[in-house]
């Protein structure tokens, strides 16, 4: 059987919030080591990959690999019933389960709610993500990245990200004019979560749809920092660490000059 007990149900709520607007139906692959999810948006422009290792759970048992086809809107309805400090227990049968049980327990043990979510059949293309050497890595405050994406959305549909030497510049333009926001590599680091790190091998200059970046920033509550990995010939990677026990990575194909 598959059984996973998460002490802080708030984490599962945050994970779901960060994927559900991008991927409606997702395959949650469970094995002895971790739960993983990979799903593409319907236009095949963006992809989300989530990894949550067994050590994130207070109790984790997966006797045989099992794949749970989750409708994220249905799962979200259940998790809306959970408080952030509720314990969440996921349970499913080993072989081709058609449903998954969720049990919510209040911290003081005085309230227990149980739900059964019907699983869905999902025929999806799984993509092979190659190992890539990126030309630039930018690590920054996740809140600052969210702010920049939101602010620039007022000016245009796309953001041009330019990395050179110790700067990263975010630019957007439209009918109202042009907006540029430049962040410089932090000279001193007092608080890691507020500092900016630009690790550059080669300059990059790429343009991305802001609509998707704004969806990626739904993961902001998961981590204080975010890392952007860029190369001229590869999709952007936006990564939020889930503590020491996993990550959410978003991949976004660039806009290209024809």
């Amino acid at each position: 059987m598959f059984e996973a007990k998460l002490q802080q149900g708030g984490l599962l709520k945050k994970i779901l919030e960060s994927v559900k607007d991008l991927v409606v139906d997702g395959l949650w692959d469970c094995d002895g080591a971790a739960i993983t999810l990979q799903g593409m948006d319907s236009s095949h422009v963006a992809l989300v990959e989530m990894l949550l290792r067994a050590e994130a759970f207070e109790h984790y048992r997966c006797d045989r690999n099992v794949t749970l086809g989750m409708n994220h809107n249905h799962l979200s309805k259940i998790l809306k019933c959970a408080n952030n400090d509720d314990i969440v227990i996921l349970k499913a049968a080993d072989q081709n389960p058609d449903s998954c049980s969720l049990i919510l327990e209040s911290k003081n043990g005085e309230k227990t709610s149980d739900f059964v979510v019907s699983l869905v059949r999902i025929d999806t293309d799984q993509l092979g993500i190659p190992e890539t050497e990126y030309s630039a890595h930018v690590k920054m405050s996740s809140g600052e990245f969210q702010r920049i994406c939101r602010d620039l959305s007022q000016f245009g549909d796309a953001v041009q990200i330019t990395c050179s030497k110790q700067d990263v510049k975010f630019s957007s333009s439209g009918e109202t004019g042009k907006a540029n926001i430049t962040l410089t590599h932090s000279a001193t680091v007092d608080k890691e979560e507020e500092s900016v790190t630009v690790d550059l091998k080669e300059p990059v200059d790429l343009t991305f749809a802001l609509r998707f970046l704004n969806l990626f920033t739904k993961a902001t509550p998961i981590s204080d920092t975010v890392t952007l990995s860029l190369s001229q010939e590869a999709p952007l990677v936006v990564e939020y660490k889930i503590g020491d026990s996993g990550h959410i990575r978003y991949f976004l194909a660039p806009k290209i000059q024809e």
Binding site: M40, S43, H44, V45, A46, L47, D125, Q126, L127, G128, I129, P130, A158, T207, A209, E233, A234, P235, F251, A253, P254, K255, I256, Q257, E258
Partner: peptide, 14 residues
């Protein structure tokens, strides 16, 4: 002219 690339152009289907 700016077009949107697709992920399949970079990642192979498994």
């Amino acid at each position: 002219m700016v077009n949107q690339a697709y992920l399949g152009e970079y990642f192979g289907d498994q």
